[in-house]
C-alpha cells in the first residue's frame, strides 16, 4: 500500500535510496528558502501556521533570474522564488505536458528529469535549480519519432486517461537509467512512486520492461 513506499520529498519513484539532492526534508527546504518562498508547496493550513510565526518577507514575490536548459534549449527566466519547478514549467513556460496531480509529492504525475535524475517537480523550488538540465515529456520525441519508451506505452496499454502518463514515462526513464528495470518485480517496486488511478499498472510495467530490454 502507498504508505509502505514513502519517498523523501523531491524524490520520485524511489524508496529512500537517495542522493544528496533528495535527502532534503520539507523542514530543510523551508529553512533554505525562507517561509514565504515555500508557500507554494504547502497546503493552506500549513502555510497559514508558518506565516503566523515568521511574518512576511517583503520581497516575497520579487522575480529573480534563473537559467534552465529545458529539453536542450537554454531559457533565461525571471522567476518568483516561491514558484515550484512544476509551476515554472506549466505556467511560465507553458510546457503543460508535465502534470500537477497533487502538489504534495505523493502522486508522481509531475515527475521530470533534472540533471538526469527523476524528481517530483512540485516539491522543489525552481530557483534552487539555476543552471540545471531539465528534461520533460515534450523533449522525448525526436524528428517525429516517439522515444522507444513512449512507443512501448502505446503498444502495451500503459495508460488509460493519460494524465499520469508523462510522469510515468519520465519516471520509467529514470528507473531504466538507474538500473532498476531488471525484472517486473523490480520495476513495480521502483515505479511505485507514480500512482495510476485508472490502474494501467500491468501495461506500465510491460512498457518499462520492453523499453529496458531494447536499450
Amino acid at each position: 500500500m502507498t504508505n509502505q513506499h514513502q519517498r523523501s520529498p523531491g524524490e520520485a519513484g524511489t524508496n529512500g535510496h537517495s542522493g544528496p539532492a533528495s535527502t532534503l526534508s520539507r523542514r530543510t527546504v523551508l529553512q533554505m528558502a525562507g517561509s514565504a518562498a515555500s508557500l507554494a508547496a504547502m497546503s493552506h493550513a500549513e502555510a497559514q501556521s508558518i506565516s503566523e510565526t515568521q511574518s512576511t518577507v517583503a520581497d516575497a514575490g520579487a522575480a529573480r533570474p534563473l537559467q534552465l536548459t529545458v529539453n536542450g534549449v537554454s531559457r533565461e527566466l525571471e522567476v518568483d522564488p516561491r514558484q515550484s519547478l512544476l509551476d515554472v514549467l506549466r505556467e511560465t513556460l507553458d510546457l503543460t505536458g508535465t502534470k500537477k496531480g497533487c502538489n504534495q509529492g505523493a502522486c508522481g504525475a509531475c515527475t521530470i528529469l533534472v540533471n538526469g535524475r527523476r524528481i517530483v517537480s512540485c516539491l522543489t523550488l525552481a530557483s534552487m535549480h539555476d543552471g540545471a538540465e531539465i528534461e520533460t515529456i515534450e523533449g522525448l520525441e525526436k524528428n517525429g519519432e516517439l522515444h522507444p519508451l513512449q512507443q512501448a506505452f502505446v503498444e502495451h496499454e500503459g495508460l488509460q486517461c493519460g494524465f499520469c502518463t508523462p510522469g510515468q514515462i519520465m519516471s520509467g526513464l529514470g528507473c531504466i537509467a538507474e538500473g532498476h528495470a531488471g525484472s517486473p518485480e523490480e520495476i513495480r517496486f521502483w515505479m511505485s512512486g507514480n500512482i495510476c488511478r485508472c490502474g494501467a499498472y500491468p501495461g506500465i510495467v510491460a512498457a518499462v520492461a520492453d523499453a529496458a530490454g531494447r536499450s
Binding site: 506549466r90 505556467e91 507553458d94 510546457l95 503543460t96 505536458g97 508535465t98 502534470k99 500537477k100 520533460t136 515529456i137 515534450e138 522525448l140 520525441e141 516517439l146 513512449q150 512507443q151 506505452f153 502505446v154 503498444e155 496499454e157 495508460l159 493519460g162 494524465f163 502518463t165 508523462p166 514515462i169
Partner: peptide, 21 residues
C-alpha cells in the same frame, strides 16, 4: 487496436482543462 490518441498522451500533447492557458 491500440489507442488512436496514444501518441498524443505519451508526448504531452493531450491537453486537459488546466493546460489551456
Amino acid at each position: 487496436h491500440t489507442r488512436v490518441d496514444g501518441p498524443r498522451k505519451v508526448t504531452g500533447n493531450a491537453r486537459y482543462a488546466a493546460d489551456f492557458n
